[in-house]
Amino acid sequence: MTTVLEVLGQVFLLAGAMVFILAAVGLITLFDPYTRASAVATAAGIGVGFVVVGVVLLDPSVSNAVKAVLAIALQLVTSAIGGMAIARGAVLTGHDFEPGTDASELHDLHDPGDEPDAR
């Protein structure tokens, strides 16, 4: 059973590494900050999940499993929030979208700090 867990752990670690490599390639090849942010946020969530599961399979214990669940949950939440914050910052600073992107819902988006004071 230990050998099976070790093999599965190594497979998960390699899968996580491959996700990170694909995200790095995406950062180089994708054209606008929105798709780049999406690639990084997705890789952060999935890649870290694979790596953490792989580590738990290599050193299985209840305490490690609890730590892994907590780490994966926090990573999924923070990577999603970080990706949305980066994309929103790009929209608010006026970065162009890749040609063919439908941004019609964003034409009214503005920074609340630009509103005049209501006195």
Rank of each mutant, 00 (worst) to 15 (best):
T3F: 10
D117W: 10
I72L: 05
L74S: 11
Y34G: 07
L5C: 03
D102P: 03
V91R: 11
L70Q: 01
S104Q: 07
G9P: 04
M1A: 09
H107P: 00
R88E: 15
A80P: 00
R88K: 14
G100I: 06
E105D: 13
A43T: 01
I81C: 06
T101Q: 03
M1Q: 06
G82E: 03
G100A: 07
P60M: 06
I81W: 09
T42A: 09
M1H: 11
G83K: 01
Q75P: 00
S38E: 10
P33H: 05
G54N: 07
H107S: 13
I28W: 10
S63V: 12
I21E: 07
A23M: 15
L76Y: 00
L106K: 02
D117G: 10
V4W: 07
F12G: 02
P33F: 07
L8Y: 09
T3D: 14
V66T: 05
A71T: 15
A71V: 12
M1V: 06
A90P: 02
G94A: 09
P112M: 03
G16T: 08
D111S: 08
L5M: 06
G89E: 09
A17M: 13
H107M: 11
G45Y: 05
P112Y: 05
G89P: 12
I81F: 14
A118F: 08
E6R: 08
V52F: 01
R88W: 08
R36K: 15
L106Q: 03
V77A: 15
L106V: 03
S104M: 02
Q75D: 10
D32T: 05
A43V: 01
V56I: 04
A37D: 06
V66F: 07
G94V: 14
V48F: 09
G16Y: 09
I72V: 15
E98K: 09
V52Y: 00
A68R: 01
D108L: 14
Q10A: 13
S104F: 01
Q75K: 01
V7A: 08
A71M: 10
G49W: 04
A24H: 00
L27E: 14
I81Q: 10
E98L: 08
F97A: 10
V91D: 12
A37M: 05
P60T: 04
S79D: 02
D102T: 01
L74G: 04
A41G: 07
D96T: 13
S63N: 09
S63T: 15
T35E: 13
D32F: 07
V77H: 01
H95C: 08
D108T: 11
V7R: 03
A103F: 11
G94P: 12
V51C: 05
L109I: 14
M1L: 08
L57R: 02
A90C: 10
D108N: 13
A87T: 12
A118W: 09
V40Q: 11
I72M: 05
L57N: 01
P33K: 02
P99M: 00
A73T: 13
D111A: 02
L92K: 04
I46H: 01
T42K: 05
Q10D: 11
T42I: 05
A65F: 14
L76V: 10
P116D: 12
D96I: 03
K67P: 00
L74Q: 03
L57Y: 08
L5E: 00
D96A: 14
S79N: 00
G100F: 07
P33C: 01
A23S: 14
L27H: 03
G47H: 07
L8N: 07
A80L: 09
A44Q: 11
T2Q: 09
T3A: 12
T29W: 06
L76A: 06
L92S: 08
M84H: 15
